[in-house]
């Protein structure tokens, strides 16, 4: 899906935990995430801590979307 959406010329960032899959499929902008059942969250943190964590992950995603890349790039 990532690649087909990008073919329309829209920048897309893949947020995923198993980034090796993401790389082998060929996503150009990748942000590694926390865990398979909660990629952008962490139930073991406090509500505020989790909010901050999610914010930092979304920040990375937005950074990826505003950065020029020439091929598969991981934003960590």
């Amino acid at each position: 899906m990532v690649k087909e959406i990008e073919r329309y010329g829209i920048p897309i960032v893949h947020m995923a935990t198993i980034i090796t899959i993401s790389q082998s499929v060929g996503a150009n902008r990748i942000v590694p995430t926390v865990a398979i059942p909660h990629p952008v969250g962490n139930p073991s943190l406090s509500a505020e801590g989790e909010h901050e964590l999610r914010k930092s992950l979304v920040d990375k995603a937005l950074k990826a979307l505003t950065t020029e890349v020439s091929g598969i790039t991981i934003f960590d």
Partner: peptide, 13 residues
């Protein structure tokens, strides 16, 4: 594209 979206965040589990 039709909706004029400028960027996409796709999350996977």
């Amino acid at each position: 594209k039709a909706d004029g979206v400028d960027g996409v965040i796709l999350t996977s589990t």
